[in-house]
Design a protein around this nucleic acid. Structure first.
Ligand code: SF4
Ligand code: SF4
Lengths: 152, 152
DNA sequence: GAATACCCGACTTCTTCGGTCCGAGTTCAG
DNA sequence: CTGAACTCGGACCGAAGAAGTCGGGTATTC
């Protein structure tokens, strides 16, 4: 019901954590998992997916771990979700497999596609840094905002 | 994975169909189901939920059926989703039951709540009539749009 | 070469979703 | 008044997906 997967959730947390510790050359999956109480093995697999998608860079061996492949500012929440949960579609008519069979007669599909794009736009306008910056604002001077246009 | 339920999907279709036929005093669940190829029994239950939420008005007996309780313009997609799928939350931390147990240590929750509100705002800005109006535009003169502000 | 860490697929468990069935109650035409 | 046409509402089930676990394999460093 229009809910984010916990995997994506964890992924965002991990990315944010990495963005907050740029001084470390690499952080292991276990480090991050312990920091938040996430099941380590699960987080590991998520980070692997992010690596495969080019969002992270991994390094094996001792003192190995993961590091951001790009600047935190340059990574959007949309990419993270895309990498973890696959193609982003609000509706079930993905045109691929398991699509809704009443696609032809459906009159609501095209308007919903626009909504889909709008939401995707919202997600794209959020970077990892946006998440990291808003760290318990002591002086709430920082204010970021974006306008998203919804066309029907 | 951030996907609308088919129930909500069907609900929107039904609402739109009703909005397109204001001349009928009432349409039965079967009528609507046949028009789109939706499983009739399922649609029936969805319409019942919408009735219980006050979006529809039902009339039993022969020539009975459902009719819009409000103007199509006054019903938002958000209300429909809310009525069918329950409380709207992007994340798993609903503060109710089955919530995420690492809520206290989670640093990503508050920013995500804002995203949640933003998306809810998008949904709220869409009315049933918006869906119905955009009916295969012969002259594509009609253009509706809305701006949604996203504050981080 | 041993410790550390990533890599990756298979598997189990649990929840939700999509859908069906059936036994009521209501209304109205004939 | 009787029965067809409709709504109402809960119980039920199978399939799919999500969350999490296990285990074996590979790379890197000390
Ligand atoms: S085709 Fe219509 S009913 Fe089917 S998933 Fe897409 S929007 Fe929903
Ligand atoms: S508390 Fe954090 S990790 Fe848990 S569901 Fe909410 S946002 Fe996700």
């Amino acid at each position: 019901m229009l809910k984010l997967t916990k995997k994506a959730d964890y992924g965002l947390m991990a990315l944010k954590y990495l963005a907050e510790h740029p001084e470390m050359p690499a952080l292991s999956a276990k480090d991050i998992a312990d920091a938040y109480g996430i099941p380590a093995q699960l987080l590991a697999k998520i980070l692997q997916q992010l690596t495969k998608s080019g969002l992270l860079r991994s390094h094996a061996g001792m003192n190995g771990g993961y590091a951001l492949a790009r600047e935190a500012r340059e990574v959007s929440a949309f990419e993270v979700i895309l990498a973890i949960d696959g193609p982003f579609f609000i509706t079930s008519c993905t045109k691929g497999k398991t699509g809704c069979e009443l696609t032809p007669s459906c009159t609501i599909r095209e308007p919903l596609a626009r909504v889909n794009d709008t939401i995707a736009g919202v997600l794209k306008s959020i970077s990892i840094q946006d998440l990291a910056e808003h760290e318990h604002p002591p002086g709430h001077a920082r204010e970021a905002s974006a306008l998203v246009e919804l066309t029907l």
